[in-house]
């Protein structure tokens, strides 16, 4: 096994185009246990930890929030930029692994791992985020929903590096909430996670709902539930019945030893309701 250790993004992109079989290592928290377990046996690694100076940032510019791919979960947790409705990023961080994991894990690694257990994918889908990929040939921006293809499969060319996630800042009534449910209080793989973003000004003007497993084995949007929310004035559970009904229809939460599918659906429904009610301020 060979390791390429560039110090700048430019160097990294040039190394990558020449070594397209190289597997990228960021924080390594997802990849390294798999290498150790002989699950993956790469010939070549491209270590991008040297790029953290360049790719670790949280910026608000021109109505957009941009988070560098090498930003760690701890940096997100402690960030001052992520205030107001953006505090939801901290709700995710608070239940993300352990403090030690948060110091190493990056948000870029989270989305590139592309699993139902990756919590930021769910939140970022609800924010309709985009992914910025760079290569020696230039840059392209893809909607996260198009980037996530399937379990462990993303829409990335072998010579590209994910450099940023970006999304519209939450203004004019936008708000978002996130819940993650596991079998203990911390250090958990989610049984279910739910993110909801709403533009609410007396009524639901826009809604985006994402969960860890919708239709595929990766997080996805629950579009029927979103639609059912539109135009609703929410005063209590009864205003959410239709949306919950819709949500139930589009969840494919399978059973395993951790929990049954039926229970996961029940959790998803309860927490979906709780988040929406919290977001609009009803008990």
């Amino acid at each position: 096994m060979e390791v390429l250790m560039p110090n700048t993004l430019d160097e990294a992109l040039r190394a990558l185009v020449k070594n397209q079989d190289a597997v990228i290592v960021a924080g390594g928290t997802d990849l390294w246990p798999r290498i150790r377990d002989l699950e993956v046996r790469p010939e070549r690694l491209l270590d991008i930890s040297g790029l953290s100076g360049e790719l670790s940032y949280i910026r608000k510019e021109g109505g957009k929030v941009r988070i560098g791919s090498m930003t760690t979960i701890a940096e997100i947790y402690e960030s001052r930029e992520l205030d107001g409705p953006l505090e939801v990023f901290k709700d995710v961080a608070a239940k993300f692994g352990s403090p030690q994991i948060r110091n190493a894990a990056t948000i870029g690694g989270n989305i590139c791992a592309s699993l139902s257990s990756e919590d930021y994918i769910t939140l970022l889908l609800a924010l309709d985020a985009s992914v910025v990929l760079k290569s020696v040939y230039g840059e392209r921006t893809l909607r996260l929903e198009d980037f996530i293809v399937d379990k462990r499969t993303v829409n990335r060319k072998p010579y590209e590096i994910v450099t940023e996630v970006q999304f519209n800042d939450m203004t004019d009534g936008w708000r978002a909430g996130f819940e993650k449910i596991g079998r203990r209080n911390t250090l958990i793989i989610n049984l279910v996670n739910v993110a909801v973003a709403l533009r609410y000004n007396g009524r639901v003007e826009e809604a985006r709902v994402a969960l860890n497993r919708v239709n595929r084995k990766v997080p996805g949007r629950a579009r029927a539930a979103e639609k059912a929310l539109l135009g609703k004035e929410i005063r209590g559970d009864s205003d959410l019945e239709e949306a919950v009904e819709a949500l139930r229809g589009e969840l494919s939460l399978t059973s395993d030893f951790r929990a049954s599918g039926e229970y996961r659906v029940a959790l998803a429904e309860v927490y979906f309701k709780r988040i929406v009610k919290r977001l609009v301020g009803v008990a």
Binding site: V3, G28, T29, W32, R36, D47, S49, I101, N103, A104
Partner: peptide, 13 residues
């Protein structure tokens, strides 16, 4: 200065 897990961090990092 930050606590991290040495069992899942590559030595070269």
């Amino acid at each position: 200065g930050k606590p991290v897990l040495s069992c899942i961090m590559p030595a070269f990092q």
